[in-house]
Design a protein around this nucleic acid. Structure first.
Lengths: 186, 186
DNA sequence: GTCTATAGGCAGATAGAC
DNA sequence: GTCTATCTGCCTATAGAC
């Protein structure tokens, strides 16, 4: 059972990395199996199709984001909590310059295809949106909280795309500075 | 010669549509040929590879954007010029909800692969960035013009992604309202 | 549970008749 | 210039030995 989970999780993290770096459709099961050091045919013992691997990756992403929120929720000040979320994006700005934002890429690629997979990725983005909205409510923004969450999230996603496009991590870092200030004036 | 250009341009517009709706890597030459009503084998008389079709599509996108800027440049007020750019995004908000932003999708998908194609798509995004920066300079924003262009463009790209993700054109429309006001307070 | 071998299909690209 | 037929290789998925 330990070994089963071990191979399964190795496949998921390998798929997550490759989906982020190359995109879902250009990543083959052979790529994933090789990176996870699992024989190709064995992949189908753990996942019945490529689609189910994508779902497992989205679930893995959900856990990563949940852990991030658990950490953020430990911060007393709501303003600092939001500012820390923004600051955290700069930690991977080099990775963003090379491959973009992992969730944003998934939503962009899968969103067009529609179906169950797109919905699963959208759910995850919605969770982030909800968390942000909750923070703005906590800041007393009331009815404006939803729109503020939309502005913040779209700014973060947009700058990730520009950072990837221009292959320049500085964009993410500058935007983070701007947004940290913006949060204080909102 | 007329026929040559006719088939060629039919292939380019078909590819442009399919790349936008399905993504580049999932679109096959057979898909493009069928939509353009050109036999599959004949595609290679006009393009030596799929990659060269992608480059032609980016070039086609460049002309579309150039035409858009030609129109915008006819507007006297710089502020109204920028506001019109923002308002224009709402014209395709339904399409955005289904397939995202055409150029943004290209940059997202191709950006990871790197190489000549990614650079061509980035060039196009840079042209938009430059145009926006020029407007902010014209508004007397001086050194801040570059950052303001970045903020505007990332907001537009980010909201396109969220509009696609949540399959809701309202996001684009609300963000346009917000940005039109923001432009006045900047 | 694990892995090899391979089926079956479709992709990009080419050859060559017309 | 145009189009049919096809090559070659890779991809997802399965069969079945161990």
């Amino acid at each position: 059972m330990a070994r089963r989970n071990d191979k399964r999780s190795r496949l998921v993290t390998a798929a997550d990395k490759l989906f982020h770096e190359q995109g879902v459709s250009t990543t083959t099961l052979a790529n994933i199996a090789q990176l996870a050091d699992v024989p190709l045919g064995n992949v189908y013992y753990y996942f019945k199709s490529k689609e189910s691997i994508v779902l497992a990756v989205i679930d893995y992403r959900r856990k990563l984001i949940q852990a991030q929120f658990d950490e953020l929720n430990g911060i007393d000040s709501t303003l600092v909590r939001l500012q820390t979320l923004v600051r955290q994006t700069t930690a991977h700005s080099e990775q963003t310059a090379n491959f973009g934002d992992a969730l944003g890429s998934l939503c962009q690629e899968l969103g067009k295809q529609g179906g169950q997979i797109a919905a699963a990725a959208a759910d995850l983005m919605q969770e982030i949106m909800n968390w942000c909205e909750k923070q703005f409510v906590s800041l007393g923004k009331g009815e404006k909280a939803k729109q503020l969450a939309m502005i913040l999230l779209s700014s973060l996603q947009g700058i990730s795309l520009l950072t990837l496009t221009f292959k320049n991590a500085t964009y993410t870092n500058q935007q983070a500075d701007y947004l940290v200030n913006w949060l204080e004036t909102v």
